[in-house]
């Protein structure tokens, strides 16, 4: 039962990332691309967690945590840069 559910969710999350990539490439504006990248980070966390379930190992948990942190920080940094043209005051 979990096997089938896992494959379905793999497919759905991968499609979600493809849709994010479409928004990232097409734009039309800069904030659109940032939010596409941000969502891609979060979706890749989901993908990593699914992979963890598939392999039945807990090795990749730290990876998920690191992606969550770096994704948030880079989004904030890019937003700050677009708002003020400067990140560090």
């Amino acid at each position: 039962m979990i096997g089938i559910a896992l494959w379905i969710s793999f497919f759905l999350v991968a499609m979600a990332i493809v849709l994010n990539a479409y928004r990232l490439l097409v734009g039309p504006s800069l904030p659109d691309r940032i939010i596409a990248l941000d969502t891609m980070y979060v979706n890749s966390i989901a993908l990593i967690i699914l992979y963890t379930i598939w392999l039945s190992t807990r090795v990749y948990f730290e990876g998920a945590l690191l992606i969550a942190m770096l994704g948030f920080i880079s989004t904030v940094a890019v937003c700050k840069y677009l708002l003020r043209g400067d990140i560090i005051e």
């Binding site: 379905i8 969710s9 759905l12 999350v13 979600a16 849709l19 979706n43 989901a46 379930i53």
Partner: peptide, 12 residues
């Protein structure tokens, strides 16, 4: 799993 993946997909 299915619910989470479905919601993720819909939002994207």
């Amino acid at each position: 799993l299915i619910a989470g993946a479905l919601i993720t997909f819909i939002s994207s």
